[in-house]
Simulated assay, not measured.
Amino acid sequence: MAGAPAYSMMIDPKPHSRAPPPPSPGFKMTTGDVGILKSTLLPSFSLYSGLSVAAYAVAQSTDRLEIKDWLWPSAQVLNAWLTAIGRPMYETGITFPDAWRGLTWSEKLLISGVTVWGTRLFARIVSRSLARGKDDPRYEAQKKEKGFWKTALFKIFLPEAAFLSFISLPITVPYSMGDTTLSVSTNTLSTVRALGVGLFSAGFALEIMADTQLELHLNEREDLCRYGVWSLVRHPNYLGDTLVHISFLLMNITDSFNPIVLLGPLANYLFLRLVGGDKKTEESQEKRYQQQDTHKYEQLCNWRGEKNSFWPSLKDLTNPWALAVVGCGLIGVVAEEIVRSSLTMR
């Protein structure tokens, strides 16, 4: 439409102080550029594998396999900041404030979301680990396998580093690309950004609610927690994590989008469902409850027949706790709009 402001100025104004990309061919790329492997996956895997080796050494020396879980959120936050801020500072010689000002609004939203999500999850994992004083019950049976620590680096730590490399694509690729490859209207991009912010807010709130309600329950009772957001699905914390990672994908669409970032939330979902999430958790619970607590085992069996492990049913969408989660998402959208508008008006 004639006279309408351009998308880059309407939604994600790119500051004039943004440093120009260096001549290195790996710093900016097109969708089909094979350099994406060199510029995103390989650096991520190098970072994660190095951190995994260090985590393995600590885990083996302390006999605490759960040390690898400390790495999961913290490594993603570190990778996001190194890619978005550290890399341009190193390659172009700009200062931290200039590197931050050079990010678009969507890029700032993305790295802020990753930081808030990862920091909270890291604090939760570490505090729970220190309070417990021993390894996570899910890992005790694994460690009893013959020669466990001799093969754990290659069977557990490095494979998880590979998964993280793919999961991190939405938080590394946008800082290594040019402008968006999608040709859609400004209104559509605004809607997508709002959906991304809403999903992040809802997923983040769901994780907090799930962890808080479970901790309060365990302090008062010894049976399974099946109220609050735990009345929606058997593993609301994993559902919240999935919503957060989908939101990272949506934030990509509003700025520098490359189809390869679709692998991020997909890899995260597959890991949570098939590798280290609800499947492993319930396998461990079933074995322990059968041997130690028949009441909990009966509860778990009945619960499986009533609730899905990951996705709520249609009737659960009217559950007050589902409405509370949706409400948190809407609050996030409104808050982001207010902050963005106030900063734009300055």
Rank of each mutant, 00 (worst) to 15 (best):
W149C: 00
A141R: 03
E207G: 00
H16V: 13
I331H: 02
L224H: 09
L82T: 11
P5C: 07
V233S: 13
G329W: 12
T104W: 04
S127I: 11
W311I: 15
A55N: 01
R87V: 13
S8I: 14
A335Y: 12
T180F: 07
K315H: 13
H217L: 06
S165W: 01
M209L: 15
G147P: 02
M251R: 03
L82P: 05
N268L: 15
G93H: 08
T62H: 06
I85P: 06
E282R: 08
D278Y: 12
C328P: 00
R221C: 05
H217N: 04
T119V: 15
E215G: 02
S247R: 05
G264D: 08
L189G: 09
L169N: 04
L216F: 01
L214A: 08
V244Q: 03
C225G: 05
Q299V: 11
I11E: 11
V334K: 11
V244N: 02
C225D: 05
D241A: 12
R128E: 13
E306H: 11
G228W: 02
L51Q: 10
A202K: 06
A2Q: 14
V184Y: 05
E222W: 07
N302S: 09
V77Q: 00
P73N: 10
E282Y: 12
A267M: 11
E145Y: 01
G196T: 08
Y289R: 01
K38N: 03
A59F: 01
K150Q: 07
T191W: 11
H235P: 00
E207D: 06
T294P: 12
L323C: 08
K38W: 10
L47Q: 03
V333F: 04
P159C: 08
L250N: 03
F122T: 12
P13W: 10
A131N: 07
D293V: 09
T181D: 10
N302R: 12
L189Q: 06
W70P: 04
W72F: 10
F248D: 01
R346E: 10
R18E: 08
R288K: 14
F310Y: 06
K28T: 15
I36W: 14
G113P: 04
M10H: 11
A267G: 03
L266Q: 02
G113M: 15
R120F: 14
W321A: 06
S201Y: 02
V184D: 07
A194S: 13
E91W: 14
W303M: 06
S74G: 09
P259Y: 00
K68E: 05
P43V: 07
A335T: 14
D278G: 03
I11R: 15
L153G: 07
A19C: 12
N268G: 10
E337V: 13
A162D: 00
M177A: 04
I338R: 06
T31C: 12
I171S: 04
W149P: 01
L158F: 09
T92E: 15
L42Y: 05
S46V: 15
N268I: 12
V229P: 02
D136K: 05
S201P: 02
D211G: 07
K287M: 00
S74V: 15
T254P: 02
W70A: 01
Q142P: 00
V261R: 14
G3D: 14
F122E: 01
L216M: 01
G147H: 06
L195H: 01
R234P: 09
K108E: 00
T31S: 12
G240R: 10
K108L: 00
G35W: 09
Q76E: 07
A335D: 03
A210Q: 09
I167Y: 02
V233L: 12
L199R: 02
R221W: 01
